[in-house]
Write a protein that binds this DNA or RNA. Structure first.
Lengths: 335, 335
DNA sequence: CTGAAAGCGCTAACAC
DNA sequence: GTGTTAGCGCTTTCAG
């Protein structure tokens, strides 16, 4: 059977004996037609399995499209998965569609992604982080669409922002560990050169330690993806150099759990011999035999707030330009 | 400063002293123009920061759009995060854009998502699973676009498919545990009513146990998201009813790790008192103090193959309609 | 090698 | 309450 060409407003109009415009009005649920007309049109549309052409709609009118670009560093990160879920649920509830991309912590890849996406004339975009290429900023300015930057709030945003200060997270953890009596701290991270936000946490951490008079002893930064393995081997490497550390701050919880695995496997008792603390608040961290000491980030809430703020702006509703979400240092049994 | 209206082909044409058509040809890298013309046009395009309007492009021609719809059950699942990453990397390398959605294991939500997405006239879609509503199938047929169903391969696909048999995964694990001497097996799952693929694993598992003469003793299915917590409390509940189980098969690795945490916290020694086995192959499973016995699924490869197969089809290249990816039962130290 | 004309499906603006 | 006209930016087709 030959593929039947998709029906359009005109087909319905003809079949219902009205004009395209009337059909358009009915289908968009406006007003300016009789009940009788409406029923006829709706019935025809259903019969013909009419699917509106959003391309024509978005193209042919100033009506903003309902496409929203969303770019995150990595799709495989537990944290960003939750952020995306928050975005996705909010957007779909509001009738918007997400175009998703990832850039693996490269602002150049982010620009490439954005260049593709703006060509689709999206209603707005959600980006991660506060550092972008000049090209990205130009693209955004020329597009003249709302932008929400999520995750980091260290400096002032291009347009809107939802997040928190990574630097403060590091400071808070540093102060906490000092209060707990730790004096010889190390750090294990990954991808330092490109993950600016991870570096911000480290900066805050070292600053706090410095102020307390017990500066960071050493750090080990792996050029690897910040997962369990990197945490495991990162701790191994760091301890080989610095056997006398009394606590290690990890780039994130996955790495901290990897570190915990290394400690367990090597007879290092946690937290008495060595404290291990993470960042992020992944679910797994709280069901470990020993609950991980970490900073919990409200990931889904960030995604939701970003999507809702963007749409509020699009609808001309008043909305806050900068939303600060609270992170929470949760003392566990490992640090 | 007033927002400068975006430049279009005509603006460039005027500035370069040629026609729209010539500009169009140059910008799309075709042929039929002199080098001199090309340089002039490219220079003008750059000067005006021209961004092509993909909406007009896709709308105004039969040229397939480069939009690809991708729908997964959950964005927060470690496994699907990796699938999405595979899809995303392959698509962006090939010049396509992903419209992403999730349906939380509801085929009705999947249909709602698809209805929105089809209206954008995507080049193709990637769906998860083999069960869809009649409405979904209609939508797909009418759209006349390629469809790749990923993840499950139990029955024959609508169009193309990339995956493996969940049923066989269950059978294999059942046989493995019997060979290891387990005789009193239980199962802990979540969301059974809607997660058809999880059920397929359970079916295969019970079938294998039945054939061996040691049928499944009991199962505990939680109406909760299949994460660490559900695994923890699911095992607690199951053991309260059936203290004499000698092994428990979990819906996935997250739940198995939760179960492991419960066992550790309650002095149950694994694997001597109780075997604990999972499914999926999340990275964490292999750095636990005791490596989890599980089935490893090549998630990223599935996403990559789905995206590449779809694009191959779009370009008229020959491609396999059904790609079976191998899963691998990896014996660890927990079962 | 280059250009002119028509049209994709829809909606805004205006007429009736 | 309903219809008509024009046009969004691009590509296709056909003429030169």
């Amino acid at each position: 059977m030959v593929q039947k060409t998709k029906s359009n407003l005109e087909d319905i109009a003809k079949a219902a004996g009205v004009s395209k415009m009337t059909v358009s009005r009915v289908l968009r649920g406006g007003s300016g037609f009789s009940d009788e007309t409406r029923d006829k049109v709706l019935q025809e549309a259903k019969r013909q399995a009419y699917v509106p052409n959003r391309l024509a709609q978005a193209f042919g009118s100033d009506l903003a499209s309902t496409l929203v670009g969303v770019c995150v560093p990595r799709l495989t990160s537990g944290l960003f998965g939750h952020v995306l879920e928050g975005v996705d649920i909010a957007l779909s509830r509001l009738g918007y569609q997400a175009m998703v991309g990832s850039h693996n912590h490269s602002i150049v890849e982010e620009e490439n992604w954005l260049r593709q996406v703006v060509a689709w004339r999206p209603a707005g975009v959600i980006l991660s982080g506060r550092i972008h290429t000049a090209g990205t900023v130009d693209l955004l300015r020329n597009a003249g669409i709302p932008v929400v930057e999520i995750w980091d709030l260290t400096t002032s945003p291009i347009d809107m922002a939802v997040g928190f200060s990574h630097h403060d997270c590091g400071v808070e953890m540093g102060q906490f560990l000092i209060r707990r009596g730790r004096r010889r701290a190390g750090f294990v991270g990954a991808l330092a050169r490109s993950d600016v936000m991870g570096s911000a946490r480290l900066d805050g951490f070292t600053a706090a330690l410095d102020r307390a008079g017990f500066p960071l002893i050493d750090r080990e930064i792996l050029h690897d993806s910040p997962g369990f393995y990197a945490g495991y081997y990162g701790l191994e490497t760091l301890l080989a150099r610095q056997p006398k550390l009394d606590v290690v701050y990890f780039h994130n919880d996955e790495m901290a759990i990897g570190g915990l695995a290394y400690a367990t496997a090597n007879g290092i008792s946690v937290p008495s011999d060595l404290g291990i603390v993470g960042w992020g608040g992944m679910e797994a961290a709280s069901v470990l035999p020993r609950r991980l000491t970490t900073t919990v980030v409200p990931t889904t809430a960030i995604g939701k707030a970003a999507a809702e703020g963007l749409v509020a702006r699009l609808k001309g509703e008043s909305s806050q330009d900068v939303v600060v979400v609270p992170t929470r240092l949760v003392p566990g049994e490992t640090g």
